[in-house]
Every structure is written in C-alpha cells, then in structure tokens.
Design a protein around this nucleic acid. Structure first.
Lengths: 217, 217
DNA sequence: CGCGTCCTTGAACCGCGTCAAGCCAGGTGG
DNA sequence: CCACCTGGCTTGACGCGGTTCAAGGACGCG
C-alpha cells in the first residue's frame, strides 16, 4: 500500500519484524497502543469483542494491510488482531511513526488514502448489516472474502483462507447455524462448492442474485 | 479539524463557500467526485440508500467535519449528504486538494487522523448493528447523538439537532415504530424527556444500563 | 477404534418487522 | 375562532424470520 516506498530502507534498523503463527494474537484488545503493524505477508483478522462476549470480525487484512489505528486519542487498542495463517508483521513504534509523518509526506498521504478507502468499505458494511437479511449477509460476506482472498481457478474463484464456520459467521454477523443453512442452500443451487473448509464460488452472478437490486461494491 | 490552519489563507481564492438551507442536498449519491466538502458551520447527515430504497444514516457531521471521501479510486460519490440545518460548506476541488496534499503535509496528516478516527467509530458501529437488539440500537444512537450534538443543560443533556423520528430510526438502524416504542419506554422510566422533536437525556447512566456490560465508546 | 471437535439439520420459541388504526400538533380556509 | 385536513408520531395485533436448544453426522487425531 505504499509502505514499501523509498523510505523503507531508511527505517529498516528501527522497525521490528516478527513472524506469527496461525491463531496467534498480534494485537490484544485493550492493550496500550505502542505503534502500528504492517502486514508484510500472511493474513490477519481484525476482531472486536462486544455484547455477551460475541465476536465480530470487523475486517480482514492481507499483505500491505495495516493493523493498529492511530488517531481518536486512543491509548488502548479497541480491536484485536489474530493471524489466520503464518504471517510476517512489521512493527513501527509510535516515535518512529511520528518521524515518518513529518519527514515523509508520501507515507502520510498513502496512509490517508488507505484509511479513506477502509472508511468507505466500513460504511458500506454498516448499511449491509442494518438492512440485509441472513441470506444476504452471508452472500455479502462471501463476496467480501472473494475480494480479499479470492484466487481465480478453472471453474470459479476459490477463497484462499483457512477460516472455520464461526469465523465466517462472525464476519457476516450471523450465527453458525444460519451460516450452515445458507451455505447448504447455495450448494444445492450449485452456486458454490464446499469441501471441508475450502469454499469455491462457481457462479458469481448467481450469488449476486441473492442480494436485492442495486447492491454492488 | 485543522482545515483552518495557516494554509487556509493561501487557498482562499480557489475555494468556494456556499450556504445550504435545511434539507438541501450537498452531495448526491452517484454523482461524480469533484472534490471535498468541509463543514464550516451547521450540521449534516451522511446517508446511503440501500436495499429496497431504505435509507441508512451512515454518520453525522458538524463544524470541522468532512464530506466527500477521496481514495478507493471512486469516480462517484457512494454516499449523499444533506444539511440538517442552515449550513456553510466550503468546497475544495480535486486539483486544489492535490496541491494541498503535496504542499501541506500537516493538512494530509490531519486528514489521515480524521479518517483514522472515523474508521474506528465506523468499526464500532458495525459491531453494534450486528450484535445489538432494538433497544440497544436506539440507546446507542441516542448516545451517538449526545456525543455529536449534545449540549449540557441544567437537568441533563439536550440533543441540539432538528431530527425527525425517521432520521433517528435510520441512524439507529431500526424502523420508526420500534424507535417510538423504545423512546416511550425510556420516557416512562424518566431516563429521557421528549417534547416534539426535542430530546433531553436526564440520566445518562440509566441509559447506559440498557446496553450489556462493557459497551462504551 | 474411540473420542472430541466442528459442522449440519431439525424443531420450538420469541423478537422483530409489517400492517393498520388512532392520536396529536400545526396549518389552512371558511 | 373553529372545523377540517395533513403529516408525523404512537400504539396495538399478528405473522414471519431468526435465534436458540438439541441431536445427529462427518472428520481428524490419538
């Protein structure tokens, strides 16, 4: 996302890169904000624990993504981040970030654009959660997964991420039973194909048909 | 939010300030992105029309707020903006923005922080909509209104905005009937006080009690 | 082979959304 | 000044959709 620009070398001694294994926490909810995490490679889910300890997957991020919002005068991370697979994450501490903001306007610009984009996506999701029924929410989540982790294969698009049903349900904002029911329906139609945790979307158009008119993004 | 910095004078000849009256559209959904709008004074609702032409109020903005996201490679505004009262809005066209980003890193920085903050709020709302029941959604919306437009008065906090029930319902993500029911309940309790469109929160703690443990923001 | 975990399916209950009617305040015109 | 009308708000009743509970099935691992 631009975090690999010319400035990258100049801070290589100050940054800290770590490798996280699957299911390992990168950011803990409520922990003090010490800096920002850049995903060099791998996949991460950003979660938020809410009412009745229900988990909501707020968004997913892959290479080039960012975790650990600044701004809002936070001292504590309001969200948690967990690796979905073995991931390399680069950590930039607060003081380094401050220098970057001052010395490298392009970095700030890219970050601004990144947030702007994420905000739009987030606002779209607000609308979806408020107005969609269960089937639509699941279909929407599948399309989000396709967009994030989709890999084109001979007979459709495979979602390249090892997510269990609970994860997908938490992303869609439904419970696991409902997710199962909808996935079964879609399988019957031949719209998707599942084998254990692997999901492949065969007919993206059929999928879209499940969502009411003028819903695209 | 920093849009009134030292650079403000330098662009005063290029910017365009207009006055909008109540209920007037500032940004039209689907219109081409020509630039960005800064709210100098007044109040604005940012809406998004979705499934079955249902309206969702995505967020509210007042003096210092921004409308008209950049980024995401948009050519069209995915959202609309409507004045809630007589408002003065400053418009900055795209080319001017580009100059600002390059010449004024502080502007870019402030914008980045603004988006970062809005993203966090937006992500919190995703969680709320996904997990809250109707009562909680309404209470959450009231607390959001308090935060945005709250004015402290002798006997509580008055929400200083002329919103009708449909607006509040669209913000909460419920329908007007449900909104009515919850407001009636809260009135019976003495938690809030309504007189026509004016709403005053008497006991913020009582309000909070309606939302399950650890919900704050 | 047996156990545990995750996934799927069924059934019953309850909350929510929709429809419909009544209410209240403000505006208009006789 | 009052009757009427209109639009927004409130309240009630009912049916559907979603949530929850419970049991059965599939698969992986020891």
């Amino acid at each position: 996302m631009g975090c690999s620009g010319e400035w990258y070398d100049t801070i290589s001694d100050k940054k800290r890169t770590s490798t996280y294994r699957k299911d390992q926490s990168i950011v803990f909810e409520g922990a003090p904000v010490l800096g920002m995490y850049f995903i060099l490679n791998g996949k991460v889910k950003i979660i938020s624990t809410g009412i009745n300890n229900k988990t909501q997957i707020v968004r997913l991020a892959k290479s080039g993504g960012i975790v650990g919002h600044r701004g809002y005068g936070n001292e504590k991370y309001p969200i948690g981040a967990i690796a979905l697979e073995k991931s390399e994450i680069c950590f930039l501490p607060n003081n380094l970030l401050q220098d970057l903001f001052i010395e490298n306007p392009l970095f700030t610009y890219n970050l601004m654009m990144y947030y702007s984009k994420e905000l739009r996506i987030s606002e779209a999701k607000i609308q979806h959660l408020a107005q969609m029924n269960v089937t639509e929410k699941v279909v929407d989540a599948l399309m989000y997964l396709k967009k994030c982790f989709g890999i084109i294969e001979d007979s459709g698009v495979r979602i390249d991420a090892d997510l269990n049903r609970k994860d997908i349900a938490d992303l869609a904002g439904v419970n696991t039973e409902q997710l199962s029911r909808v996935l079964s329906e879609l399988k019957k139609e031949g719209t998707i194909l599942t084998h254990h945790r692997s999901i492949r979307i065969n007919h993206i158009n059929k999928l879209r048909e499940h969502i009411s008119p003028f819903q695209q993004f």
